[in-house]
Write a protein that binds this DNA or RNA. Structure first.
Lengths: 146, 146
DNA sequence: AATCTTACTTGCATAATGCAAGTGATAATT
DNA sequence: AATTATCACTTGCATTATGCAAGTAAGATT
């Protein structure tokens, strides 16, 4: 039930690595969720839900579940408010930063898109940009005692 | 009919560039098609169809149509065999090379995948790898008189 | 002329998605 | 203590996308 469909791990591992990436990320929402967690610091279901009115609540739940299965994010209960669940990027999830960056730069180069500020940050010094968000992530990891 | 659904260009342009990328590439097949054209040199419907038995013929036709709409690939009739259509990457399509590369490297780092040869090529000298496939593309462009 | 290839389209069944309306657990308010 | 609000979801149902088998039209091969 929780698996995507027919293709399971063994089949994913067989081909080019790109097949695995596409299986995990090749849909309308996963990368956007990851972006919002990585760049905007979103952590809760509610934040993700309100952000882009567009994703349906059941789909968000489903994508979060799958991202957890793939080890890209993890869910941890909020110590302050026990109703809440905080979703955080794992290292595997953080390692998607270069992918997101290249996708942003590609679209910015070929489409008329918004958020030029972010684009300039990325384009100016890509390595520094990546190092910065990585460092921020390391800090949150340290803060939560990992 | 040919448009994806509700979201049209104006809506795509509004947000973060990533939204545009995901709208164009966020599905199960588009990136795989682009990879096969970029790395394996596939040009015809038949080649793409036979490659991964998995994509349905109507879906392949649909994806090719959309990729053409987005300006990522172009279709040109084969001068030798007039039944044939050759699909070629546009510059915009070629510019996806860094995206594909990062996705491959990410999956290779975090999953057990095949095609280590390709991965090593990319990992060893990413810039050179990208320059090489770019140069190859430039040559095919020159060859077809563009 | 008959057959084969290539690039599709069509019809139909199944799966994924979107929307509205719940639900159950916890927290805040009165 | 009871009521209301918030949070993270599920469930049911309609719509849309996908997958498969079969068919088709234009052009090539024999």
């Amino acid at each position: 039930m929780s698996k995507t469909s027919g293709k399971s791990g063994s089949e994913r591992r067989s081909g080019c690595p790109l097949n695995a990436s596409v299986e995990m990320l090749g849909d309308r929402w996963s990368l956007l969720i990851i972006r919002d967690m990585m760049l905007r610091g979103f952590r809760s279901y509610k934040e993700l839900m309100e952000c882009y009115e567009g994703i349906a609540t059941n789909i968000l739940a489903d994508r979060l579940r799958k991202l957890i299965e793939y080890g890209i994010i993890a869910a941890e209960p909020d110590p302050q408010d026990r109703r809440k669940v905080n979703y955080v990027l794992t290292r595997k999830g953080m390692d998607l930063a270069p992918v997101l960056t290249e996708m942003v730069l590609w679209a910015a180069a070929h489409e008329e898109t918004g958020n030029q500020q972010l684009v300039e940050l990325m384009r100016g010094d890509k390595a520094k940009f990546l190092a910065d968000i990585r460092a921020r992530w390391e800090r949150t990891q340290a803060a939560s005692g990992k």
